[in-house]
């Protein structure tokens, strides 16, 4: 097992992966019709931006985008305590009858996606909800599966996956790193 951080995806690999994910989404939905990309704060929003850019390039049309902050829908408020910084939820278009793609950087236990599904339900009734993640690291605690996956990574015990995006972290990279003792 690596004791040092290992790069799982380089910047160029991230770029290629995002392109492929965009293509798979278009294939799944048979085009751009009724498609809305909704990123989960904060890195999911960044990945959704990338996907949207690729889709716009392919289809010549912008796809509507939104952001979800699931902090207030978490199920662990009382045990973990409130997260001090609540992000913005922003759904600029009606989602009733649309195909909503939830976009996140890493899929792990599935609890974040459960919260996102609950939050989406408060905004309307989409015709279909898809899930696209850059990395699926396994370890699900809920019956939730992605529809589009960038890369599946087997994460050994005591390690975590860090997704870095240039807008927030200065570079694009996916890193497997040992968990530092608290």
């Amino acid at each position: 097992m690596p004791a040092e951080p290992t790069v799982v995806l380089t910047a160029r690999a991230v770029e290629r992966t995002v392109r492929r994910m965009a293509d798979e989404l278009l294939e799944l939905n048979d085009g751009i019709e009724r498609l809305i990309l909704v990123g989960i704060q904060r890195r999911g929003v960044q990945i959704a931006e990338r996907l949207a850019a690729v889709i716009a390039e392919r289809e010549g049309r912008d796809v509507p985008r939104g952001a979800l902050d699931i902090t207030l829908y978490r199920d662990d408020l009382q045990s973990v305590g409130p997260i001090p910084l609540v992000g913005r939820t922003d759904l600029p278009v009606e989602i009733d009858g649309q195909v909503v793609v939830i976009v996140d950087d890493v899929l792990f236990t599935g609890r974040t996606i459960r919260a996102a599904l609950d939050e989406l339900a408060d905004f309307g009734r989409p015709a279909r909800i898809l899930l696209a993640v850059l990395v699926d690291r396994g370890g699900r605690e809920l019956p939730i599966q992605p529809d589009v996956v960038g890369k599946t990574v087997d994460v050994p015990l005591g390690h975590r996956i860090d997704v870095l995006v240039s807008a927030l972290d200065g570079r694009d990279e996916v890193v497997l790193a040992p968990v530092k003792p608290a």
């Binding site: 207030l72 829908y73 978490r74 408020l77 609950d118 939050e119 408060d122 905004f123 309307g124």
Partner: peptide, 8 residues
């Protein structure tokens, strides 16, 4: 929102 409620 239309549904002015979060489950927090």
């Amino acid at each position: 929102r239309a549904i002015k409620k979060v489950p927090t």
